[in-house]
Computed example of a mutant assay.
Amino acid sequence: MTEDKVLYRVRFISQDKVYEIYAREVYQGDLYGFVVIEDLVFDTNKTVVVDPGEEKLKTEFEGVTQTIIPMHSIIRIDEVEKRGTAKVVELKGNVAQFPSPIYTPGRTPES
């Protein structure tokens, strides 16, 4: 892993869970309202101590070259200096995200 490459931490909501993943490429997709995430970065060290949460994510995204996420599911995208631990956290409480339209066309003039 080269240290001069840009690294992003992406947090998004999916199925009542908050995902935090790291990737080298994040951009707006050709399909309006979607964010493309490519070149996911996971821990590659072969140590005795293994984080089960990150291993689960690694397995979930195994073989994925690109994931496309709806813009309204994105919580935050940060450019970071070094990779942290990828994780999935359960959303708690009784407040849920209500899907909202990205684009609402204006009214047409009345004839």
Rank of each mutant, 00 (worst) to 15 (best):
F61T: 09
N45R: 14
P105L: 11
G84I: 02
V41D: 00
G63S: 06
K58Y: 15
P101I: 09
Q15C: 01
G29T: 06
K82S: 12
T85L: 13
V49F: 13
G29Q: 10
I21Q: 02
A23F: 06
E60P: 08
Y103R: 09
G93I: 13
K46L: 09
L57G: 02
D43V: 03
V35Q: 15
V10N: 14
E81V: 12
V49Q: 10
E110N: 01
V35F: 15
V80W: 03
E90Y: 11
T67C: 13
A23G: 07
F12N: 05
S111K: 12
I74K: 06
E62W: 09
T85A: 09
F12M: 06
N94V: 13
Q15T: 00
G33C: 11
V50T: 15
G33H: 12
E79G: 00
V26C: 08
V88H: 08
I21N: 03
A23Y: 12
T108P: 01
T2R: 05
R107A: 01
I13D: 00
E60M: 12
L31I: 06
V6T: 10
S111N: 01
R76Y: 01
V26L: 12
L31V: 09
E20D: 03
E90G: 09
V89A: 09
K92W: 02
K82T: 07
T67R: 04
V50L: 13
S14A: 11
V64F: 13
R83K: 09
T44G: 09
Q97M: 12
V64C: 07
V48Y: 08
V41E: 04
V10I: 15
T47E: 12
E54V: 02
Q97W: 08
A86D: 10
D51Q: 06
V64L: 06
T67K: 05
K92V: 09
P70Y: 05
N94Q: 14
D51T: 08
N94G: 14
D39G: 14
Y103K: 13
P105W: 02
V50Y: 04
D30W: 06
I37M: 13
G63H: 08
K58T: 05
P109Y: 05
E79F: 00
I21G: 01
I68S: 14
E62I: 10
L91F: 12
V80D: 00
K17P: 00
S73A: 02
V41K: 07
P99E: 07
V6L: 11
T108H: 01
T65L: 13
L7D: 01
V10H: 10
A86C: 15
I102K: 13
E3V: 07
D78M: 05
T47A: 10
T65R: 14
Q66E: 15
G53Q: 11
K5C: 10
K58I: 11
G53F: 02
V6Q: 10
G84Y: 08
V50K: 07
S73D: 10
E3Q: 10
S73P: 03
T2K: 04
S100M: 06
Y22Q: 01
D78H: 02
V48F: 11
I13G: 05
Y8Q: 01
L40H: 05
Y8K: 07
F42E: 03
D16R: 12
T104K: 04
L91V: 15
V80Y: 02
D39L: 04
I21R: 00
E110C: 00
D30G: 12
K5V: 14
V48L: 13
